[in-house]
Computed example of a mutant assay.
Amino acid sequence: MEVSEFVAGLAFFISLLAYIETKRANRSQSRLTDREVELVRIQIQTAQNEAKREKTAAVSARLNKVDKSSWKLRVFNTGPAPALNIRLVLDEQNSIIQENSASRKFPMSKLEKGQSVELAAFVHMQSNPKEWLRIRWDDPSGKDRENRIEITI
């Protein structure tokens, strides 16, 4: 075996090692690229969800006892967007909120974030302990959004 054959064999062996290491590095880079693509997809989804949430109002209501015999129904918006055209839908058997009381304040044109409105509630001995109330509104994310709330005494 001559020196030239030995050098050629050594060069071939070194190039074979370089080829194997390059393949391993390419596989690793491919996995890293796949993870980066997945991360970017998650970031885009999160940004889209956040943008949608920023356009959504969250209107709800709570029955509060003011003093020994007075009750108020408080309708409020906790979402980041303003609620527009807010409507109360009272069930026929609703005995807590009188329709003429609600019709004086509703439909409301706008309810900003953190803003609320109170209605007089009439709780008496024959009042149902649980009643359902539906609130409908529009916001920048859509029309006729609804929240169905169980009011308990």
Rank of each mutant, 00 (worst) to 15 (best):
E2L: 09
V3I: 15
V3A: 13
V3D: 15
V7F: 09
G9P: 01
L10C: 12
A11Q: 08
L16H: 09
L17E: 09
T22R: 05
R24D: 09
Q29G: 03
S30R: 14
S30M: 13
L32T: 14
L32H: 13
L32Q: 14
T33F: 12
R35F: 04
E38T: 04
E38H: 08
L39S: 11
V40M: 13
Q45W: 05
Q45N: 13
T46E: 04
T46H: 04
T46Q: 03
T46G: 08
Q48T: 08
Q48S: 12
E50M: 09
T56Q: 00
A57K: 00
A57E: 05
S60E: 04
R62P: 01
N64G: 00
K65L: 03
V66S: 06
V66F: 06
D67C: 10
K68E: 09
K68A: 14
S69N: 14
S70F: 05
W71F: 15
K72F: 08
L73M: 12
V75W: 11
G79N: 07
P80F: 12
A81R: 01
A83H: 08
A83D: 08
I86W: 00
R87W: 12
R87M: 12
R87N: 14
R87G: 07
L88W: 08
V89S: 02
I96P: 08
I96H: 10
I97T: 04
I97M: 09
R104E: 14
R104P: 04
K105G: 03
K105S: 07
P107K: 11
L111Q: 05
L111E: 06
E112R: 14
E112Y: 11
K113N: 15
Q115F: 05
A121K: 07
M125T: 15
K130S: 04
L133A: 01
L133M: 07
L133T: 01
R136L: 15
D138L: 03
D139P: 01
I149W: 00
I149Y: 00
